[in-house]
Amino acid sequence: MSYGNTFPLWRAAAGDHWPAYTRHAFVQGLADGSLPRDAFMHYLVQDYIFLIHFSRAWALAVSKADTLDEMRHCAATVHALLNQEMGLHVKLCGEAGIAEADLIAAEERPENLAYTRYVLDIGHRGDFLDLLAALAPCVLGYGEIGARLAASDHAQTYAEWIGTYGSRDYQDLCHEVAALIDASVARRIGPEPQTSPRWGLVCERFTMATRLEVGFWDMGMTP
């Protein structure tokens, strides 16, 4: 799956960390239904907490943006996170007897804290592009995973999760975010970003966030 022009370059720069994330044993367990239910529920609870901080990071991007178009894109992403993606977590957890109040009160795992605070720290220290590089692995990685699993034979156990990230709506969001990244790169680095001395740093932001995604899956495997 390819979203835009910059994302494939960042994905390649991440090297083996990218398949370690998108083809993790947790992902395979979602595909074939072998992931233990308690591991999935543990992941959902932590991911609910993650999305709270992720929404804050996208809200921070609104204040970091240089243009109204950038602001609108980021604000729309915040809306989608708060009112759509988090709703999936509330629904699935509710069906398992976990109330939203329990999600809010859940203890945050260190792996979750490390990832979300890294993204927020990059957002506060860097500019709009730095923040997008740290945000991209989650948004576009889940899109890549969702599209691949939805297009292949998969067990029905986690079909709703797969269907959410493989859906037209989520894929459209990924293409919109990729276009936002491409425009941000052109605006802040120029038409040949790989020749800029700044290129290596934004690739490092993306790669570190990818590594933290691997740690998040690892956490999901050990409830």
Rank of each mutant, 00 (worst) to 15 (best):
G141C: 04
M221E: 09
R125G: 12
V214L: 05
W217E: 03
F54W: 05
C93T: 13
L51Q: 06
W217L: 01
M41F: 10
T116K: 01
E100M: 11
W18L: 12
T77M: 13
E107R: 08
A101F: 04
A155M: 06
C74F: 01
G146T: 09
L149E: 06
F54H: 06
T157L: 14
V202I: 15
A31D: 07
T22W: 08
G215W: 02
D172Q: 10
T6C: 05
D38M: 05
W18R: 11
L135Q: 00
L30H: 07
C138I: 01
P19I: 10
P8G: 11
A134K: 02
P197K: 15
G166H: 00
G4P: 04
H53C: 11
R198D: 14
S196E: 06
H73L: 08
A178S: 05
V185I: 14
A13W: 10
A59W: 09
Y3P: 01
R211Q: 06
L82R: 09
T67F: 01
T195E: 14
G215N: 11
G33E: 05
G97L: 09
P223E: 07
R205E: 04
E144D: 10
S152H: 11
H53D: 12
E100W: 07
A159I: 07
L113N: 07
P191A: 14
D69Y: 08
A209T: 01
R198W: 06
Y142R: 05
M71E: 03
R72W: 06
L81N: 04
H53R: 08
H73Y: 06
Y165H: 06
R56D: 14
L131S: 04
A114T: 01
D102T: 12
Y43F: 13
S2K: 12
H42N: 07
F216S: 00
G33R: 07
A114D: 02
C174K: 03
R198G: 14
A39Q: 00
